[in-house]
Design a protein around this nucleic acid. Structure first.
Lengths: 211, 211
DNA sequence: GTCTATAATTTGATAGAC
DNA sequence: GTCTATCAAATTATAGAC
């Protein structure tokens, strides 16, 4: 499960490539520009990542790992569902507002139809993982409230949780793009209360819940 | 307000360019490919659109005009707010499900930071227009219920309507990308009921409203 | 007014040097 | 193992033909 051990140079290349990709998409990355940033020749970059598709896949996989690490466990029983969703929102806010570039897979997802297969597969995997994290975050919160059977099996409304999770991830991606284009970060930060309303109404209300 | 009168050939070029742009973004369009589609030489395309940025701007502007024409008036007093929002949702669904490519400005918005200035301005304008349509659609629905002062001035909560409108447009863009990447159109169609819940709670409820 | 031959860059990738 | 000289193809754009 641990990602590959990239050399120092390879990591520098990945950093530069991720930035360019988040600014302008897959086609915006050129070996020449990357080489200039890390101080080698364009053809040298091919030693670290032979094909451009390899580079793209590596960037997406590293990004996925980083983001999931930031999010942490989605099923900590001492945590409210709302806290988890807020953490998810804050991850997206951090990307746009502090790093000043949109989510990588938001950009690549938009040009999904035209990406090399290995790259679009990695982007697909990112979405699947994010949705799985979110669905689990929604479900184990319900469990903490003891409003489902206590068997160890999957919750009975896993499917409903997946639907809501897909909606949440989609909404964060889209409000990020809209915020970016309008140069109005509030569009993204305002998504949080809207989403929390959907989440609250999806969780059977228990006025004074205990974590 | 009427768009420019493009020649037959120019329109063919715009059609091909729009398709490629929606598949893979601005960089995915090449004069060579466009020329092959419409049956002329690459350099001939430059007669119709001298710079690539001109071509990009023209594609976005024509797209914006087409979509607004489909949506029609946002303030027809005989229409429920929900009907208007459903029409907005159906426009996005039609793009992805029937045309089989995502919304143009969803793709270009994602690479907004890297577009030629005239193109990103046109994309920005698209979002502004769509949000204005949606905010008006939300507000005049409220008006139809007579729950605001009857003066001809702008409604008092125009600002709140804009916030919700930005959220709606953003959500549609993002669920479209997610649906595309997961190859699961339901992510987009499921957005409709979620959004309608937000809209309904934003409009003071009147059980049996008359259009 | 419409289109094309041609140029000037830039691109990803290979074969081979150190 | 790391990097580079070099290539072949593709890209936008211009100057000029019809």
């Amino acid at each position: 499960m641990a990602g590959p051990n990239y050399s120092e140079k390879a990591n520098e290349i990945l950093n530069a490539a991720e930035l360019r990709m988040r600014q302008g998409g897959f086609d915006a990355v050129s070996y020449r520009d990357l080489a200039a940033v890390v101080g080698i020749k364009a053809s040298s970059v091919h030693y670290h990542f032979p094909q451009k598709a390899d580079l793209g896949r590596a960037v997406v996989e590293r990004y996925t790992t980083k983001l999931l690490a930031f999010l942490g466990a989605p099923d900590d029983p001492t945590e409210f569902v709302e806290t988890r969703i807020k953490r998810l929102c804050s991850a997206y806010q951090h990307a746009l507002i502090h790093e000043e570039v949109p989510c990588l897979c938001c950009v690549l997802g938009a040009e999904s139809l035209d990406l090399p297969a290995v790259v679009s597969q990695a982007v697909n995997h990112f979405f699947v993982q994010m949705i799985h994290w979110t669905a689990t975050a929604l479900l184990t919160g319900c469990e903490a409230q003891g409003d489902r059977d206590s068997s160890g099996s999957l919750p009975s409304d896993r499917q409903a949780a997946e639907v809501l999770a897909k909606h949440i991830i989609g909404t964060l991606q889209g409000t990020m793009i809209t915020a970016l284009t309008l140069q109005d970060p509030d569009v993204l930060t305002n998504a949080e209360p809207f989403l929390l309303r959907l989440v609250s109404s999806a969780i059977p209300t228990t006025p004074e819940r205990q974590p």
